[in-house]
Simulated scan of single mutants.
Amino acid sequence: MEKKSFTFEEIKLKLVNYCVYQDRCHAEVEQKMREFLLIDEAKEEIILYLMKENYLNEERFTRSYIRGKFYIKHWGKTKIKIHLKQKQISDKLISICFDEIHEDDYEKTIRKIYQDYYDKQSGLKDYQRKAKTIKYLISRGFEYEKIIDNFGNA
Results as ranks from 00 to 15, higher is better:
residue 92 K to Y: 02
residue 87 K to N: 08
residue 92 K to M: 13
residue 47 I to A: 10
residue 74 H to Q: 15
residue 49 Y to W: 13
residue 81 K to M: 12
residue 88 Q to K: 09
residue 74 H to T: 06
residue 43 K to T: 07
residue 54 N to E: 15
residue 54 N to G: 10
residue 93 L to A: 03
residue 91 D to P: 05
residue 66 I to E: 07
residue 84 L to K: 00
residue 81 K to T: 08
residue 78 T to S: 13
residue 76 G to R: 04
residue 84 L to A: 03
residue 62 T to V: 01
residue 49 Y to M: 15
residue 49 Y to S: 10
residue 44 E to Q: 14
residue 63 R to H: 01
residue 91 D to M: 06
residue 54 N to L: 12
residue 64 S to K: 05
residue 78 T to D: 14
residue 55 Y to D: 02
residue 86 Q to P: 03
residue 93 L to E: 01
residue 86 Q to W: 10
residue 56 L to P: 03
residue 82 I to R: 14
residue 65 Y to K: 06
residue 76 G to V: 02
residue 74 H to C: 06
residue 55 Y to K: 02
residue 87 K to F: 02
residue 71 Y to H: 08
residue 93 L to G: 05
residue 73 K to A: 11
residue 72 I to K: 15
residue 64 S to N: 08
residue 46 I to G: 04
residue 73 K to R: 15
residue 43 K to W: 00
residue 44 E to F: 15
residue 90 S to A: 11
residue 42 A to I: 13
residue 65 Y to P: 07
residue 90 S to L: 02
residue 63 R to L: 01
residue 82 I to P: 03
residue 48 L to G: 08
residue 53 E to G: 07
residue 63 R to S: 04
residue 42 A to P: 04
residue 43 K to S: 11
residue 88 Q to N: 12
residue 70 F to D: 02
residue 41 E to Q: 15
residue 48 L to D: 15
residue 67 R to E: 14
residue 91 D to R: 07
residue 57 N to D: 13
residue 84 L to P: 04
residue 70 F to K: 09
residue 75 W to F: 09
residue 43 K to Y: 00
residue 72 I to H: 10
residue 83 H to E: 14
residue 82 I to Q: 13
residue 88 Q to A: 09
